[in-house]
Design a protein around this nucleic acid. Structure first.
Lengths: 131, 131
DNA sequence: CCTTGACCTTCCCGTGACTGGAAGCCCTAT
DNA sequence: ATAGGGCTTCCAGTCACGGGAAGGTCAAGG
């Protein structure tokens, strides 16, 4: 398979696939003409990576997960540990965003949004104390 | 004021303040010796920027908000529009993260996390269909 | 046989918002 | 005179790619 087909079947852009090769996540063969030649296994790995990335794992976490996936002697505890840590990270980000959301929507609700210059949003940004 | 004091009083790293000058968010004076010389107004703007950034506004949104803040003839509607758009963006990110969270925590719950290799997390990443 | 067009290659630059570090000047205190 | 801390600029790196240029390869059609 050439990169175009793999891109289509994996859902990943060709650029991304080349990048994953560059950072040694995959090691496709090369044809005589210099083109990358992907095996089913490469496609499989790329799909795996695509799904892991879609869940927000960093590239390095993906590398770890892929290694565990290929290690028949892995302990599921290790996989779970990686996943749980990422889950905590997601929770932190959600909490952070919800804090922002709360503050900002409070300001937005207080703003008349008309043609006058008075604006609680700007006041909130200008002063430590919002109220 | 030198940059050190402004950094302390604004809560922003000196590096960030220099960066904000570089991208023309602030324009502090210079002393004879070449040091940046910050006025109270600069400090005020930096605090404004720090709070806007903490609410997740991008630098370009901060630039807009700062311009509106300094424009006595602004209409609060314009500020509100910027804030509401950012709010929508925050909501999108929260939704995205909650989707990730749901999928991932589902997988994590299904994983025994013991010394055996069988792992629903890896299976979920390997196959399109999780169950 | 030649050309067209789709595909592939590498290489380099840009993204956002900084952060780290090197090399060197300035200022105050001892 | 020196030691230290603070200040300056400049360069490089971060993360995970994306855009685009310059050029090689291949199959189909004229």
């Amino acid at each position: 398979m050439n990169i175009g087909e793999v891109a289509r079947r994996s859902g990943l852009p060709a650029k991304t696939i080349r990048y994953y090769e560059e950072i040694d996540l995959i090691r496709p063969q090369r044809s005589e003409n210099g083109y990358r030649s992907f095996a089913e296994n490469d496609l499989h790995k790329l799909a795996f990576l695509g799904r892991a990335r879609a869940l927000g794992f960093t590239i390095e976490e993906c590398r770890t997960l892929l290694a565990l996936y290929e290690d028949e002697t892995r302990e599921s505890a290790e996989v779970k540990r990686v996943a749980e840590e990422h889950l905590r990270h997601i929770d932190e980000k959600i909490a952070e965003l919800q804090d922002m959301r709360a503050t900002l929507s409070h300001l937005v609700r207080a703003c008349a949004g008309d043609d006058r210059p008075d604006c609680p949003i700007l006041q909130g940004l200008a002063n430590e104390t919002v109220e």
